[in-house]
């Protein structure tokens, strides 16, 4: 396992510090993870290569995948229709391996804004966007996003006008949600690739808006 060491002492590409878990004092729960992994390999349940391949597959998923879907919807009206009718099929059509995930896209318009939360756990469209941000999993977000969503949005810097209807989506069961943000003004000449650069992770959760060109 050559990559266990030495990646804790610098910042990642996203600018967050790595947790100092790898070379700190071995914890009970880390020991349990190693034990489960080794037992499953010894029993022929899994191979180390399968485990690494699963890690690699998840590492390959990122908000850039969702941004590409959004930019395509902004530039291809027929694709947008298919996305809103069946998010999973549309994502697969673009070549993204989202596994068995049932994806629902909800569209922001001139008079509607959408916000995604999971109050019961922390369901997230991870098979498209990768692992969720830490705040999405907190008690504070899970508790308040359904009761005072406009106050939560203000904490994220989004002050929603009173004449906009806010639709909050609680991911309580089998669906996973992605917000299709409204295309920013002044982007008529931009290509889908350029547009994708404007689409942030938070704009696809509904706690943010796309960047301006």
């Amino acid at each position: 396992m050559p990559h266990d060491h030495h990646d804790h002492d610098h910042l990642s590409a996203s600018g967050h510090p790595y947790r100092k878990d790898n070379d700190g004092q071995l914890t009970y729960w880390q020991t349990m993870e190693i034990a489960i992994r080794e037992l499953m390999v010894e029993k022929g349940e899994l191979t180390p290569a399968q485990i690494q391949a699963q890690i690699d597959a998840m590492d390959d998923r990122s908000p850039a995948n969702g941004a590409a879907v959004v930019a395509r919807a902004w530039t291809d009206p027929d694709f947008k229709k298919r996305l809103l009718a069946n998010g999973s099929d549309a994502a697969r059509e673009m070549g993204f391996d989202i596994g068995p995930m049932h994806l629902v896209a909800v569209e922001n318009t001139i008079d509607t804004h959408n916000l995604i939360v999971c109050t019961l756990c922390s369901c997230y469209p991870r098979n498209l966007l990768g692992l969720p941000p830490d705040w999405y999993k907190t008690r504070e977000y899970r508790s308040r996003a359904v009761r005072e969503p406009r106050a939560v949005l203000r904490e994220f810097g989004v002050d929603l006008p009173a004449n906009i209807t806010l639709r909050v989506h609680d991911s309580t069961a089998d669906m996973r949600y992605i917000v299709l943000p409204a295309r920013p003004e002044g982007t008529d000449e931009m290509t889908a690739e350029q547009l994708a650069e404007l689409v942030t992770r938070d704009s696809m959760i509904g706690t943010g808006l796309p960047k301006s060109p």
């Binding site: 359904v146 969503p149 406009r150 009173a162 209807t165 806010l166 639709r167 909050v168 989506h169 609680d170 991911s171 309580t172 069961a173 089998d174 669906m175």
Partner: peptide
């Protein structure tokens, strides 16, 4: 905003 909505499965 009482007219806002909450969707759940």
């Amino acid at each position: 905003a009482p007219q806002d909505t909450l969707d759940a499965e």
